[in-house]
């Protein structure tokens, strides 16, 4: 037994391995957090750019872009109108029949629009925290288009109720539509401006746009080339466990575990959702982008989505 040993015992090795495992265990979440923080700041930067683009549209055209054209859903949304202001003038010029109808030309998914515009993915409107999707991949799109039309991650604020900006009266207590800074554009005389925000609740108290998630497969959430998915409203709290209500022209798959619960019902009610922990990011009328907590009071969240509601509230509570 006098043989001197120059080796580690099993216990010593196990302890060393255990310590290394614990250190790696501490390191990995930290690395993941940094990755997510980087993605989140890019998403926020995109929102800032979007806010500037909306303002530039207002400066150049004297009004904010409407959600969609006078005929509704399918002939282009605000996302087309801001293209010149995110340095995509080429795409804007090639987009055909914005705000038209089936009689005057093709839809968002028509052959030329799909080839030149809507099959492309705009990096500036894509949040790297989320998974990109192109939901319409087959089947008829009136106007003769075929698949691959892209979804994106930012939607404009249509106020505190629904896509159609109508009151939600049932069940009581009702939620009265107090109007957001954008409108559908089906009434050509209502061209909302930034000035309507500043003279209303104030541009620093009103959201212009917020993050949304892209659904998977043929789920049309995040499908912002199409009017009924190009907006969000504040009826549902941020990242709500309540289902989005996708109107019956759309398709959605309820995936509550992926923060994408959904039912199909009219009218559309889409929540702002994100993959960030704790909240969603928004851009306000004054151009500032910030994170809003999931636990914001519903009264504050709805107040900051209306531009002319006259409410008092605190964004941090």
């Amino acid at each position: 037994m006098s043989r001197s040993r120059k080796a580690f015992t099993l216990i010593e090795l196990l302890v060393v391995i255990a310590i290394i495992a614990i250190l790696i265990g501490l390191l990995l979440p930290a690395v993941q957090k940094v990755r997510e923080a980087a993605a989140r700041s890019q998403c926020q930067n995109n929102l800032k750019q979007l806010g500037l683009a909306l303002h530039m549209h207002n400066d150049a055209q004297k009004f904010l872009p409407p959600l969609e054209g006078p005929s509704g859903c399918c002939w282009g949304t605000w996302q087309v109108l801001i293209l010149p202001y995110i340095e995509q003038d080429g795409m804007f010029k090639l987009y055909k029949n914005w705000g038209g109808n089936d009689a005057s030309g093709e839809r968002y998914g028509g052959a030329t629009n799909a080839a030149n515009v809507t099959r492309l993915r705009l990096a500036i409107l894509t949040c790297p925290s989320d998974t990109p999707n192109a939901p319409i991949t087959s089947g008829p799109i009136t106007g003769g288009g075929t698949g691959g039309v892209t979804s994106h991650n930012y939607a404009i604020n249509m106020g505190n109720t629904t896509y159609t900006q109508t009151d939600i009266t049932t069940p009581a207590p009702a939620v009265i539509n107090l109007k957001g800074p954008f409108a559908r554009g089906n009434v050509p005389t209502t061209k909302l401006r930034v000035q309507d925000m500043t003279s209303g609740d104030g541009s620093s108290n009103t959201m212009m746009a917020a993050e949304v998630l892209q659904g998977s497969r043929t789920d049309l959430r995040g499908f912002t080339w199409w009017g009924p998915a190009a907006h969000f409203t504040s009826y549902l709290p941020p990242n709500s466990t309540l289902p989005d209500q996708m109107n019956t022209g759309g398709i959605c798959f309820s995936e509550p575990q992926a923060n994408l619960p959904c039912v199909r019902q009219n009218p559309g009610v889409l929540a702002s959702r994100s993959r960030h922990s704790g909240g969603v990011q928004v851009v306000l009328g004054d151009g500032s982008a910030r994170l809003i907590s999931n636990s914001i009071a519903i009264t504050s969240w709805r107040a900051m989505s209306t531009s002319r509601g006259g409410e008092t509230f605190n964004m941090d509570q």
Partner: peptide
């Protein structure tokens, strides 16, 4: 019969 990505349906579910 709803057309995906088309006009919103008229009838509530």
């Amino acid at each position: 019969t709803d057309e995906p990505g088309g006009l919103p349906g008229k009838d509530p579910v």
